[in-house]
Design a protein around this nucleic acid. Structure first.
Lengths: 336, 336
DNA sequence: CTGAAAGCGCTAACAC
DNA sequence: GTGTTAGCGCTTTCAG
């Protein structure tokens, strides 16, 4: 059995409450007692039991991180690992632990979240995605537990603290860039339809075309998974059309890798035959051949801001809802 | 305040212990009572408090995952995200939660582990690396808490359950492959020196050379980080030599990417000028140009086996130490 | 400055 | 079958 506060108390002839006060460095305890107790703690190898503390404090100093329902594929995408890295770093600085959801289907994940929240395992959560009609958001709102969304909510924005880029503007600016390069036939390859980030970037793409008086062609708009395979499927669909686009806006580097591979297999040159502008500026954009032009959305900052907002809300439940917009920048390499 | 077992008891005119028994589906409770209580639980929105349960059970159903001290870089390397994915999947099936270390230095990580263990936050741990003189191993052994090592321990193997590949054999076989391709000048580019995986693969490399009567050339043996930069640094060192190797064994795909980049910049062709055999067979080996030949160490299986062993040991403390060796296979593409 | 006592929410003997 | 009681390890009034 582990050594408890009681053992320390007995060893030093003080009461458990005194030991507890020494742990929290309560100023009303004499220096002498503190030293005596601390010595005993060291000698006995005492270490506070967080579970017991959590039970009385009703807080665990652990935050939950919720992955999208394609969670098993998410680990492949540097976007998620990079936000996770930032969250991990921020959590460490704030002395919070992090726990991950492990479910793969939407239902399992909701279940994970309920376990975390009702089981009182976490003090707050960060959601790494935003999609339409997500019951998790409603649940969290209803439970009134602090949470931060990475991405823009589809509804009730006034009640939800989120951290995001201006994805609409980023996509618009990116598309305009392609237009300035004299492209008129520009395709859009986005992640799963229903994801807010996809919606927003699509909106920006359409705006840019509209303002340039380029008609929007629905079969140039394709949705698929944030994976290499997703990019490949998208190209297949484009190849089936009678007229290939001369440029594509791809909303994820990993997808862009798939797009490039498939184009290569068809003997199409990048950027001569098809120009590509991608998103996320991950390690893949540097490694690919040719190196990808990509919108750097500052993933790490997104994560850091999310954890910082969350901790703020955990510490002060009255903290008003806030919306942080992280700047982006377009990094031009050789793919457009 | 959340609804407790007491509230449910009051609402149904039974005692708290009865409610507790209903929760655990104790067979000695009458069907009628069970239904009555379950109905009340539903109506009141009762959900068990895991923290309270953990306190009395002395177990949390959470396992800790320990990242290497270069934790911030680990997230970049698909090896770690892939084991994590497997662990996540296994943990989910076993109804365990997972918590990650967040520290970046060795000291911080040891600290994280102590918090998890002494704070009774986790029932067991998985270490994602094995290096020489790791105080964490000693600590865990001393605390007598279940843990599983992914990799081979540097000492006390009889007391440590681990999951690994036969890295020595894999490297030997890989090197032999290069030798069969008529290479005599073969370099070894490994991860940080001191990591067990590096040692083992180096040993296999040396064995193969020895058996082929090829003298071992110390300046062909280079250690660096499991990162693109690591691979680049290694190439710099090789370029400084008077005689370039005609083949290299690189113990990680990400490093191999750096190696290839640097070789390309020097105008050296792969595999004509320098052949490459890499390790891990991650997404990078497929994406690179030319596609990398790589030793597939079955990362996912490594993770699954680790979590399965850990859970076994958590459920049965008497479970004897076990050593699992996961098979590997060499996947030949175009880099050698 | 320190101690006694209550209680966080739950489970597990031990009764009956 | 079900209730009573004690206790997991800690914090926090309330006394003194």
């Amino acid at each position: 059995m582990a050594v408890t506060i009681r053992d320390v108390a007995d060893a030093t002839n003080v009461s458990p409450s005194t030991v507890s006060r020494v742990i929290s460095d309560n100023p009303r305890i004499s220096q002498k007692t503190k030293e005596k107790v601390r010595l005993a703690m060291k000698e006995l190898g005492y270490h506070p039991n967080f579970i017991a503390r959590s039970l009385v404090n009703q807080s665990t100093s652990v935050i939950g991180v919720v992955f999208p329902s394609s969670g098993d594929t998410a680990f492949q995408n540097p976007f998620f690992t990079e936000v996770l890295r930032a969250i991990s770093e921020g959590a460490h600085d704030e002395k919070f632990g992090i726990q991950l959801t492990t479910g793969k289907t939407e239902e399992e994940i909701l279940n994970d979240v309920v376990q975390m929240v009702q089981g009182k395992r976490v003090d707050g959560l960060i959601l790494l995605y935003s999609r339409q009609d997500d019951p998790i958001i409603d649940y969290l709102l209803e439970q009134n537990i602090p949470f931060v969304l990475v991405g823009q909510p589809t509804s009730k924005p006034d009640h939800i603290t989120y951290v995001d880029n201006d994805n609409c503007l980023a996509a618009k600016e990116g598309t305009e860039g392609l237009i300035h390069l004299n492209h008129k036939k520009i395709a859009f390859i986005g992640g799963v339809n229903g994801l807010m980030v996809t919606n927003k970037r699509l909106a920006g793409y359409k705006q840019a075309l509209k303002e340039a008086n380029i008609p929007i062609q629905e079969d140039y708009i394709i949705f698929d998974d944030f994976l290499i395979e997703g990019g490949k499927h998208a190209v297949e669909k484009l190849l089936a059309l009678k007229e290939l686009p001369t440029a594509v806006l791809v909303t994820d580097d990993l997808m862009a890798m798939g797009v490039m591979q498939s184009l290569n297999e068809e003997g199409l040159r990048i950027p001569e035959d098809v120009a590509i502008l991608s998103f996320n500026n991950t390690i893949f954009s540097v490694l690919s051949n040719p190196p990808l032009s990509s919108v750097d959305i500052h993933i790490f900052d997104l994560g850091l801001e999310a954890i910082s907002q969350l901790v703020k809300r955990i510490k002060n439940p009255e903290e008003p809802v806030s919306h942080s917009i992280i700047p982006y920048e377009i990094v031009i390499r050789s793919s457009c």
